[in-house]
Simulated assay, not measured.
Amino acid sequence: MPKLSLLRTVIRSNPSFFTVRADKNGLSSLLLRESPRFISTEAENQPPKDPPVENSFLETPGTGLVYGKLYGITRNTLKTDIVNLLEGCNLTLEDVKVDYSRSFTPLGMMVQFPSRQAYEQAARVISRRGRLNRLERADRSQWDILTPYDGKTVLLQGIPRNAVPEDVERFLSGCQYDASSIQIFLRAAYPDPIKMATIRFPSPTEAMNAFITKNRAFCLNSQVTVRVLQ
Rank of each mutant, 00 (worst) to 15 (best):
S5D: 10
L6M: 06
T9W: 06
S16A: 13
F17P: 00
T19E: 15
R21E: 14
S28F: 14
S29G: 13
P36W: 02
F38Y: 15
E44M: 12
N45M: 09
P48I: 08
P48M: 05
L70M: 14
T77H: 06
T80S: 15
E87T: 13
G88L: 07
T92C: 07
V98H: 05
Y100H: 06
R102K: 11
M110E: 13
P114D: 11
Q117V: 12
Y119K: 06
E120Y: 01
E120M: 11
Q121W: 02
A122T: 05
R124N: 13
S127R: 15
G130H: 04
L132Y: 12
N133I: 07
L135I: 14
S141F: 06
Q142G: 15
I145S: 11
I145E: 13
I145A: 06
Y149Q: 06
T153Y: 04
L155T: 06
L156N: 03
P160S: 13
A163Y: 07
V168L: 00
E169F: 00
F171C: 04
F171N: 02
L172C: 02
G174H: 03
Y177Q: 01
A179M: 06
P193E: 09
K195D: 00
K195V: 01
S203C: 06
F211C: 02
I212F: 10
K214F: 01
A217C: 12
A217R: 14
C219I: 05
V226P: 04
V226T: 08
V228W: 02
L229H: 04
Q230N: 10
